[in-house]
Simulated assay, not measured.
Amino acid sequence: MLKEERQNYILAKIRELNKVKSNELAVELGVSEDTIRRDLNQLSHNGLILKVHGGALSTHQKLYHYNESSVFNRENKVILAKKVVPLLKDGMTVIMGGGTTNLEVSRLIPDNIKLTIYTYSLSIAMQLTEHPNVDVIIIGGKLHKQALVTVGVNVVKLLSKIKADLCIMGTSGIDVDEGITEVGYEVSFVKRIMIASSRQVVALVTADKLNTTQRYPVCDLFEIDKMITDLDPNDPVLIPYAKKGVEIL
């Protein structure tokens, strides 16, 4: 098979599946993985695909793809995400915030669970397009270009009309006395509405966020039902939070 034919095959495969693996392409096309890597490099250089470790993605996947090795505390965030999954029940309506911890959650949702997920995160919405049984509703508004989340009046209006079973919310800071706080005012305001619109609120907290505060308040601890951390639930640092009535997972 000529190089042009191989590359056309690869592009057709990516259009169909949104992603391909180098080792599988090598078997399908009867060539070495080195040959496939050279093809992927050329297609990536031409802007036709997004090359990643072990294969390639459709260019529209750029919105949510990230270099896993560059994510701070990724291993800890995966631990948190795995603790969230058992809380997801078939038929639930869920509000999911932004951030890389929630992105890990969205990647781990089992295929057999049917959910309706509202999110203001473009990255998470794009990730969830790969899930066969999740209805994704993205909440439109002003785009925060760095965080790839929407903020503003429209987001607040839509969130305030939702009656969700579960809110899954990342945190920038959490303290026994100050509660949850955020770096930016707009995000803090959106999170307050998320909480008010949900029957149950789950806060995702990596250990480095414990006992820290940011500028803008989100909520008091009594407004949180569960706090999921990357620590053992019996860790002494979590005792003051448990005494405030927060269930620690």
Rank of each mutant, 00 (worst) to 15 (best):
L122I: 05
V85H: 14
N23D: 12
T119S: 12
V105G: 04
D235I: 11
L210K: 06
D175E: 01
S32E: 06
V52S: 13
V105S: 15
M194C: 11
V190F: 06
R15E: 01
P132N: 00
E68C: 05
E186P: 00
G184H: 14
G245H: 07
V105N: 09
P132C: 12
T206P: 12
T171H: 10
L115I: 08
N18W: 05
V105Y: 14
G47F: 13
K83T: 03
L2I: 02
K157Y: 03
K89G: 06
Y66N: 00
L103H: 13
S58C: 15
I174C: 09
T206I: 15
T101F: 15
E4S: 13
L158Q: 03
I224T: 01
K13V: 03
K19W: 07
R74W: 06
D165Y: 09
L50N: 05
V201I: 10
H45P: 00
K51T: 02
K157G: 01
R15N: 05
L87G: 05
E178R: 15
S106H: 10
V190E: 04
G98Q: 05
R215H: 02
V153A: 15
V218N: 08
H65V: 02
K13Q: 12
E24L: 02
G184S: 07
D232G: 10
D175F: 14
N102R: 11
P217C: 07
A26I: 02
V52T: 11
V94G: 12
